[in-house]
Amino acid sequence: PCYLTYTNEATHKILRDNMDRAPMANGIIEGVGPRYCPSIETKILRFPDKDRHQLFLEPEGLHTNEVYVQGMSTSMPMDVQLAFLHTIPGLEHCHVMRAGYAIEYDCIDPTQLKPTLEFKAIRGFFSAGQSNGTSGYEEAAAQGLIAGINAALLLKGEEPVVLRRSDAYIGVLIDDLVTKGTHEPYRMMTSRAEYRLLLRQDNADMRLTPIGRRIGLVTDARWDRFLQKKAAIEDALTALHDATLTPSAAQNAALEEAGIAPIHTACTAYDLLKRTEVHYEQLRTALPDLPALTQEVETQVEIQSRYEGYIKKQMEQVAHMERLESKKIPENINYNDVPSLRDEAREKLAAIRPASLGQASRISGVSPADVSVLAVWMESQRRMQAAK
């Protein structure tokens, strides 16, 4: 069990009185800390109007009496830590096993990296983890996975894996880092993804298993299970489209018995499933010829039908972006040779050296007009080469 408690004015007074002793607050540590888990002294300075801050008391394990105070990270000296902890309800008589501490670490500028996480200037040298400017275990692990995959593929002489922003959150994470850089520890928030309707947990296998299979990370058994699930989804969708319902007395009686409102015009079972109150199992009750589905396949079928219009619109946006992504920019391009580019765009493009027009369009300071100028120039160069 975990417990909830709060700081109070006595806690805040001790912190304010000793603020000059905290490296996170007195200037000894200059680095920008993670935005989403600030130290308690940072909270006191940043939110002076708050008379209390929430703390979670979390047991460290089943076989220990240690409790972690979540929300109370600190760089204060040990005597101050003991003093303010004893002001908190539930911790009046606590003992400290290990003091809180602050860290400051450097990171590389991630715009030095290709989308494969290989350094642009050093062939075969890949970088992953918090040293690329991220905060959090999942972010670090995601980069390690991609860097490891691409290091292995480079040794084998095979094409690298670059996940697109529409493929996975890993794709959003890495694209943000290598295209925009970061001025504070980067956290992968869902709001950073413009295609998050496509990046759902229920379709992660549909999106990524074929990529894993191509690079040798998916076993035959897992691949067979994937193909069976994919076929089951496709068969169910086909059956739903093929099942036509007419507003007859018998048909409406069958629908009402299944808990579905009667119909007044002819429609397909697929159209009925778009109703938010209708579920696949209800349709099977009214239409026994529909195939039986596992729960995960049923969920996938319901989502695909119910959100079809929104998903289709997002896929059109992805297709537009992919047209830009498919137009690769030569690695040796000299942006000084491109006329009509604005100076800021020229400077940013030369610094980031994007791999495609799509990546170029996401660089801060590069406008759609700049991308158009670059696209026209690249096409003119291609035609000149073809004419030779």
Results as ranks from 00 to 15, higher is better:
D20N: 01
G129H: 07
R213S: 13
T74A: 15
M378V: 10
Q112P: 02
N332K: 14
A254S: 06
C107V: 04
A193E: 09
P23Q: 14
E379W: 04
Q385I: 06
I215H: 02
A250Y: 02
W223N: 14
R362F: 10
R192D: 03
A142N: 01
D176E: 11
V67R: 00
L374G: 12
L273K: 13
A292M: 03
R207C: 01
A151I: 05
A345L: 11
M206L: 15
L153A: 10
P110I: 12
R165Q: 15
G365S: 13
D176V: 01
A254D: 13
N8V: 06
S326K: 14
S135Y: 11
V301A: 03
E30I: 02
H95M: 10
P247G: 08
T182E: 05
A147C: 08
E234R: 11
Q112C: 10
R46M: 06
A387V: 09
I174Q: 02
R207T: 03
S340P: 01
L208D: 05
A266S: 15
D202V: 15
S340A: 12
D51R: 09
G100L: 05
L173K: 05
A152S: 12
T294F: 00
K327S: 04
R225Q: 15
A232G: 05
S367L: 09
E118R: 06
P185C: 09
I333W: 10
N26C: 02
A249G: 09
T182A: 11
L255V: 13
H12M: 07
T268G: 08
L113V: 01
H12R: 05
F84E: 00
G358W: 04
P247V: 00
L341M: 07
R362N: 14
D175W: 00
A147V: 07
I28P: 01
T285E: 11
R306D: 06
R207D: 08
I29G: 04
D79G: 03
A22Q: 00
I29K: 03
Q295W: 04
A83P: 00
E277W: 00
P339I: 09
R52V: 01
E296S: 15
R16G: 00
C2T: 15
I88C: 04
P59R: 05
E298H: 04
A375E: 12
H53M: 05
L287K: 08
L357N: 09
P291V: 00
T64W: 11
P160F: 01
Y6M: 04
G133C: 11
E344L: 15
S364G: 14
P23T: 10
I233A: 09
I146Q: 09
A345Y: 07
Y169W: 01
K120N: 08
K388W: 02
A351I: 12
